[in-house]
Design a protein around this nucleic acid. Sequence first.
DNA 1: TGATTTTTGCAACTATGTTGCTTTTTTGTA
DNA 2: TACAAAAAAGCAACATAGTTGCAAAAATCA
Lengths: 152, 152
Amino acid sequence: MAVRKQIESTARVLDPLKQKGLSVTGSRRKILQLFMQQKGALSHGDIEKKAGVTFDRVTIYRTLQTFLDKGIIHAIPTADNAVRYALCQDECGPGHHDHQHIHFICSRCKQIFCLDHFVTPDLHLPKGYQAKDVDVLVKGVCKECSAIAKRA
Amino acid sequence: MAVRKQIESTARVLDPLKQKGLSVTGSRRKILQLFMQQKGALSHGDIEKKAGVTFDRVTIYRTLQTFLDKGIIHAIPTADNAVRYALCQDECGPGHHDHQHIHFICSRCKQIFCLDHFVTPDLHLPKGYQAKDVDVLVKGVCKECSAIAKRA
DNA sequence: TGATTTTTGCAACTATGTTGCTTTTTTGTA
DNA sequence: TACAAAAAAGCAACATAGTTGCAAAAATCA
């Protein structure tokens, strides 16, 4: 059972890489694993720290760019000069991202989460403006931090 | 008439500074003017270019921070590592920002506009999450670029 | 006008992101 | 399994972005 689980988890990491036609390398495996283990989104800096000194900074930049291009991760806009990245849904692929979720920024723990909840903003754009893609960022307090606050 | 107008426009620049209890300096006047003249939002880099070599980079950083703190401008999250800033509505003040507008990012001219159109996203957050602030980023083609595309 | 407070500019530094090139690793095939 | 071709990683050097402390200059207020 333990073995079975390990095989599955290795496959889970390998699959996305092979599926997207990427060669499987140490850094890609490691970075993908970091994303899979992680509830919140990761910045370049986070990855650098979590990966230890194992990889060159440049490799991390290039890996993130590759993952973005192939639709494995998506970038989450922020106002703090530290773009975060998170895994995509299966529907995403090279050149197109299709997310029907919102991004939640916790003002307490500073983590950013993807919440898979449909949002249908009631957009009334002025004449002439054509919307293609909508990104909703919600700031507030996340589930865990709310619980902590309640207890205190 | 021309004189009258000039007085008014100077007043428009001075008012927000005095109103917020800020001392009036060359750089603050200049940077505020840039924002007022500008339709789209500005990044730190944009300001550096538009202001010429007049001001030290550090002064621009500090001025932007001051304007943010006082509620004169607000930061617009982006995914390209270049946070933009734009003027606030009158309702904003030190410590609180109250915007009921969306941010529109034109994929053609790369400009970012504040559109004063009410948005009421239909947020169904999971249990435990508390929303405080919602930021809506819309990517698409702006009015002017749509017109250009039509003509071509 | 002059003293006090605030802001600016400068220098030095840290962090972040990019590019070209060589070495290493991966892949696909024999 | 070994080998050649292709792809990626690592390294160095560079470019850009952002921060901090401090002295000089400017703005405020009496």
